[in-house]
């Protein structure tokens, strides 16, 4: 169960990035996996090559991944936006960027799996009869803090108001004086920072490798599951998916894990095509 919550938390940190970008720009940013992977490597090298303490490496990886996400937006999506490109082009460019990042890392750093130095003792944390893994607790704590901070930014600040307004109508928010380019940068920055954290935590729990970004397929599923464009939806969808996966692996067989996850996704989409908490389609018109 805790294992499921921790997996779900990692998915949630990634899924909100998909959801934020989708809510404003109406496309799924498949380059997000690349950002997560680079985040995991930044954390890894900060701790091994540069021998930095965990917390510093952690901050560095958030900052690095956030900047990478903004850089992608600047180099890849801004030119498309300036030309009013159709949304299909964004998705194709996103996939291209993702393939580029993966192969760039394979070519420069190499395809081998790398293990983070041990930060948390593998000795489980005992709470009464429960024994909890320390890394799982850490993941859940980071995700909770990160996601709560994100929700506060979106719900309570002026920037957040601008983001929510832009997600409804870019034109109308421009007429209110919102600088849409800046708003989009901020969205990529926020999504990128959380993606970096997710990548590092995932790398610490398992290992780091160039195609680690592929796990974002799962977080994307979770975002769709909860309703693309809805932050609470992405979070709830992720946690549910994580718990379901672990329960299925535990009680049935891990071979059924993805099968059942996707069957549930398809089931939900048949019943409610916009996901659990998605916007209704007329909202987005």
């Amino acid at each position: 169960m805790i294992n499921g919550l921790s997996l779900g938390s990692v998915y949630a940190l990634m899924a909100v990035g998909y959801s934020l970008v989708y809510s404003i720009m109406n496309f799924s940013n498949f380059a997000h996996g690349g950002v997560i992977m680079v985040g995991a490597y930044i954390g890894y090298f900060a701790m091994t090559a540069a021998n930095l303490p965990f917390w510093l490496a952690f901050v560095l990886c958030g900052v690095g991944a956030g900047l990478l996400a903004v850089l992608l937006e600047l180099l890849v999506y801004t030119p498309l936006r300036n030309r009013n490109a159709p949304f299909l082009y964004y998705i194709i460019s996103a996939m291209g960027a993702s393939i580029f990042l993966e192969n760039f890392v394979i070519a420069t750093i190499g395809p081998t799996y790398r293990t983070y130095p041990q930060v948390f003792s593998t000795e489980p944390f005992r709470l009464g009869a429960l024994s909890l893994s320390r890394i799982d607790l850490m993941i859940i704590a980071v995700a909770a803090v990160g996601l709560v901070a994100l929700v506060i930014i979106i719900d309570k600040t002026k920037i957040g108001l601008g983001i929510r307004a832009s997600s409804f109508s870019i034109k109308a928010s421009q007429l209110m004086g919102v600088n849409v380019n800046v708003t989009i940068f901020i969205v990529f920055l926020l999504g990128g920072i959380l993606a970096g954290f997710a990548g590092m935590l995932f790398g610490m729990k398992y290992t780091v490798y160039p195609t680690i970004g592929a796990i974002t397929t799962k977080s994307f599923v979770a975002a769709v599951f909860g309703g693309l464009g809805s932050l609470p939806g992405a979070i709830i969808g992720s946690v549910l998916l994580g718990v379901i996966e672990v329960l299925v692996s535990g009680y049935l067989s891990s071979n059924f894990r993805d099968l059942i996850a996707f069957v549930i996704l398809i089931g939900i989409l048949i019943v409610k095509p916009t996901g659990l908490m998605g916007k209704t389609s007329e909202d987005k018109a």
């Binding site: 929510r164 034109k171 007429l175 209110m176 004086g177």
Partner: peptide, 26 residues
């Protein structure tokens, strides 16, 4: 200069008050 667009383009996902606050964004 403030533009009240055709078709109103109010932010249907926000509350009345949040819409007004958007008007004073800058």
């Amino acid at each position: 200069i403030s533009h009240v667009p055709e078709g109103r383009l109010i932010f249907a996902n926000l509350t009345t008050m949040e819409n007004l606050r958007m008007g004073a964004y800058l």
